[in-house]
Simulated assay, not measured.
Amino acid sequence: MSTPAQPRPEPSSDAPAPRVPTRVEPGLDPAWVTETVARALDEDLGAAPGRDVTTQATVPSSATGTAHLVARADGVVAGLVVVEEVTRQVAERFGLPRVEVTFVASDGEAVGRGRVLAALTGPVQVLLTAERTLLNLASRASGVATATRAWARELAGTGAQVLDTRKTTPGLRALEKYAVRAGGGTNKRMGLYDVAMVKDNHVVAAGSVSAAIDAIRRTFPDVLVQVEADTTAQALEAVSAGADFLLLDNMPTPVLAETVAAVRALEGTDGVPAKVELEATGNLTLDRAREVAGTGVDYLSVGALTHSAPILDLALDLLPAPPSR
């Protein structure tokens, strides 16, 4: 049984850690995959072991066959790891033999319409029952990877990278952020627990940017602190107050360029880091990507990668049984 390749190798142990709050580990946690697939199957089959009333009534449990996982549109593949797990769990629930899966495409690979991604051979009951769940997950992940690849391709050579956000489908964040990596993007913080993000409401609650940053440093000294800024003045205030990096929100391109230049002029002075990471966000579109990157920001964060990407249309086609002799 072959295994789909992962989108990126892990960085070498002597590579410097990035200061931006990124997570670039290539794989998905197997325990997360198992739990997520189990919940998805419960939705479709009912509480375990569940049932597929159509398939189990019309297909003998002894029938075997082969199905092809096929791309019905051009795009970038991600989430193939779920295919084996979905078929494994369905076979286990029904007490049937496992499906053998042979992958002929890898996560992160650009594929054309009609491309076979994997061949699945085993009990037909398992193939048909597993179909929708594995397609839902793999199509969703591949759609995110496809959208991300468009941004990564547009930013190629600019020195800026595309980031995702927390605007993910509840319960599928790990899969969608994995898909961003497969598409050539970079993950931002995984949640509220790993990086501090000071927004306007936090400033109001704390009394000032400095007070908010100081409170975070005292309470959670191990985390990086990012501050949202809408103006050049706010950006300079945040840097002077000790922010590790800035989220420059909804700035017109000229203002963004002015802000980047002003922050760069402060780098390495009066306790300001030698390199302040700068991230543009808000009102970003693909046709503006290179223009925004040209201001000198390090990152463009795009919520649409996960909250608005259409699925990549995938299908599971059962092959006709060979004629009997």
Rank of each mutant, 00 (worst) to 15 (best):
A5L: 13
A5I: 03
P9W: 07
P16F: 00
R19N: 12
P21D: 03
V24R: 14
V24I: 13
E25S: 01
P26E: 04
G27Q: 07
E35H: 10
R39Q: 12
D44T: 11
D44W: 11
D44N: 11
A48S: 15
G50L: 05
G50N: 09
T55A: 03
T58R: 09
T58M: 15
P60C: 01
S61M: 13
S62K: 09
A63G: 02
T64A: 07
T64W: 10
A67M: 05
L69P: 01
V70T: 00
V81H: 10
V82T: 15
E85F: 10
R88G: 02
E92A: 13
E92S: 11
R93M: 05
R98T: 13
V101P: 01
A110L: 08
A118P: 08
A119R: 15
L120C: 07
P123V: 14
V124W: 00
V124M: 05
V126R: 06
T129A: 07
E131P: 03
R132Q: 02
R132A: 01
L135K: 02
A147M: 10
W151I: 03
E154H: 07
G159L: 03
A160S: 08
Q161F: 15
Q161L: 14
D164F: 00
K167L: 06
P170I: 09
P170A: 13
G171M: 01
A174P: 03
L175T: 05
V180I: 08
A182W: 09
A182H: 06
G183H: 06
G183M: 04
G184Y: 05
R189Q: 01
M190A: 10
G191L: 01
L192C: 06
V195R: 02
M197N: 06
M197Y: 10
M197L: 15
M197H: 06
D200C: 06
D200I: 06
N201F: 07
V203G: 05
A205V: 11
A205H: 05
G207K: 01
S210V: 14
A211R: 11
A212P: 06
I213G: 06
I213T: 06
D214V: 15
D214E: 15
A215G: 15
R217A: 09
F220G: 12
P221D: 10
D222I: 14
V223H: 11
V223G: 05
L224S: 14
Q226K: 14
Q226P: 03
E228V: 15
E228A: 03
Q234G: 14
L236S: 02
E237C: 09
A241R: 11
A243D: 02
D244Q: 04
F245W: 10
L246P: 03
M251L: 01
E258N: 03
A261R: 15
G271F: 07
T281H: 08
A293G: 09
T295D: 05
V297Q: 09
Y299D: 07
Y299Q: 12
S301A: 03
V302L: 03
H307V: 09
S308M: 04
I311P: 10
L312F: 04
A315G: 11
A315D: 11
L316G: 01
L319A: 15
L319Y: 08
S324D: 14
